[in-house]
Amino acid sequence: MPKDHPKIAEALARQGGPDRIPASRAARQADYLKALIDGNGVVTAAWRSSAVSESTLGRWRTDNRFAVAEQAIREWIAHRPVVPRKAYALRASENQFQRFLELLQDASASIKDAAHEVGLGASTIRYKASRDADFKAQLEALRPVGHGGRRRRPITVVDKA
């Protein structure tokens, strides 16, 4: 039974009365449907990531129960509200940003590592700095000064590993 989505597999296996879907097929179909959800409805990516061949997917679609489940998921994906990516910066707590600044006081800490330590992405830090002048000033003050007097570790170019 798939670990992340046993309810999908169980629902598929229960359908159909006397001609129930075998548990192994229901598990594979659940893997595909979960990949379809995770892949935002992109069918090709879903069957590839769930290790289902295109011909197998075609056979599954001849079963009305599977076809209805797949279509329901695709319609749900098409009509669900889209949350803007930048909304995460608004959900991040001020405590996370303050802890991030505390971690950056260690000169060996990178922006990326400090951000990940507190559960934030580097892009969230850049977004916060672009919207909050006080945060940007605190971040600028923590940038180390190099030998030539110029500041290193610019906030616009985050360490990429």
Rank of each mutant, 00 (worst) to 15 (best):
P2L: 00
D4L: 15
P6T: 08
E10L: 11
E10D: 14
A11Y: 11
L12Y: 00
A13P: 02
A13L: 06
Q15Y: 15
G17F: 04
R20A: 12
I21Q: 12
I21P: 05
P22G: 10
P22Q: 08
P22M: 04
A23Y: 04
A23I: 11
S24K: 03
R25L: 13
A26M: 05
A27N: 06
R28Y: 03
Q29T: 02
D31F: 09
L33Q: 03
K34M: 09
A35W: 03
D38P: 10
G39L: 13
N40W: 11
N40L: 11
V43W: 10
T44L: 13
A45T: 04
S49H: 11
S50A: 14
S50L: 02
S50H: 01
V52E: 03
S53F: 02
L57P: 00
R59P: 01
W60R: 07
N64D: 15
R65A: 11
F66A: 00
F66W: 03
A67Q: 05
A67T: 04
A67Y: 02
A67P: 10
A67V: 01
E70M: 12
Q71T: 15
A72L: 08
A72K: 11
A72G: 08
A72H: 10
R74H: 05
R74A: 07
E75C: 04
W76M: 08
W76V: 00
A78N: 12
A78V: 05
R80K: 13
P81L: 13
P81W: 01
V82R: 10
P84D: 02
R85I: 08
K86V: 06
A87E: 15
A87M: 10
Y88N: 11
A89C: 06
A89Q: 00
L90M: 06
R91D: 10
R91A: 08
A92I: 02
S93G: 12
N95P: 10
Q96D: 02
Q98I: 07
R99M: 07
F100N: 01
L101R: 03
L103K: 03
L104D: 13
A107S: 14
S108H: 06
A109H: 06
A109V: 14
S110G: 06
I111S: 12
K112H: 08
A115V: 00
E117K: 15
E117S: 07
G119R: 07
G121T: 14
G121F: 13
A122P: 09
S123I: 07
S123N: 09
T124I: 12
I125R: 09
R126S: 04
Y127N: 09
Y127S: 01
S130F: 03
S130Y: 02
R131C: 10
D132H: 03
A133L: 14
A133E: 15
A133N: 12
D134G: 12
D134S: 08
F135N: 13
K136L: 08
Q138Y: 03
E140Y: 06
E140W: 13
A141D: 00
L142F: 01
R143H: 00
R143N: 04
P144L: 04
H147A: 14
G148Q: 07
G149S: 04
R151D: 04
R151C: 07
R153V: 11
T156M: 10
V157A: 05
A161Q: 11
